[in-house]
Amino acid sequence: MPTQDESRTVEAVQTTLDIIEFLLERDGAGITEIADELDRSKGTIHGHMSTLYKNEYVIKKDETYRLSLRHLELGETVRDRLQIYDVVTEELDDLSASCGELAQFAMPEHGQAVYIYKSAGENAVQSASSPGKREYMHCLSLGKAMLAHMSARASMRSLIATAFRSILKTQLRLGRLSSMNSKRSASVGTPSIGKRKSRGSAVSLHR
């Protein structure tokens, strides 16, 4: 059940966020394409795009809009404020170099596992993961390690949130599963313990 704060959303802000997500997936689109996808009028979308362009969150070439490098600044700032990033990169680089496999580090956020860093050894498998990418916890070895060390209530909330999102993104999820099933790999995840700033996070090795 959503809290009072969670239920107080602003439709215009949601539309802007939907536009950003859409441009992220498509790597650029025009007014008509965005309006059709989001089921909004072209006038409404034009107003949102003008605002995003004025604030330098999108760029425009001909009639196509794309996300700007402003988002890179935001992402880098958020990552640097984690305070554990330098330690994580050093430890994962040592781990992947010593075993020759793919080492990944993720943290929980909004009921999902968010990749923070990955390091590939000389025998590392190919992975579609990338820093900032979000995945359902129960689908990942490191995500399962996170769930195992959460309280029962927190684990249930995460799984409920996952179920809700899966309904909204069924087609996308099926495509990912099809791609994953075509590859043979094995992985193991373990929680990060001891560092206060990294509690709830996890590391995985893939081979």
Rank of each mutant, 00 (worst) to 15 (best):
I59W: 01
G111C: 10
S141P: 04
A128N: 15
S68L: 02
G43R: 09
D39S: 12
D36G: 06
Y65D: 00
L142N: 06
K144Y: 09
K133E: 14
E90K: 12
A29N: 04
A35C: 06
L92D: 02
C99T: 15
G47V: 03
E63P: 00
P108W: 07
G111M: 11
E109N: 13
R26L: 03
S41L: 01
M107Y: 14
N55Y: 12
K133R: 14
G143A: 07
I31C: 07
R66Y: 03
I45K: 02
Q83N: 11
V87N: 10
V58E: 00
E73C: 02
E37I: 05
G75L: 04
D39M: 07
L23A: 03
Y115P: 01
V78A: 10
R79G: 01
E135V: 15
E109A: 12
H138V: 12
D93V: 08
T44M: 05
F105H: 12
S50R: 09
S98H: 12
E37C: 06
A29F: 07
Q104C: 15
G132I: 10
F22G: 01
L142S: 09
F105Y: 15
L52H: 03
K42I: 10
D86M: 11
T64G: 01
Y117L: 08
I84D: 09
M107T: 13
H110M: 13
K60E: 09
S96K: 03
I84T: 11
V88A: 13
E56S: 08
S68M: 03
A29D: 02
R40S: 03
S50Q: 09
N55T: 12
L17E: 07
L52R: 01
L82Y: 08
E37L: 03
R40Y: 02
I31S: 05
V114K: 11
I20E: 02
V125E: 10
E101Q: 14
G75R: 08
Q126L: 13
D80L: 09
K118D: 05
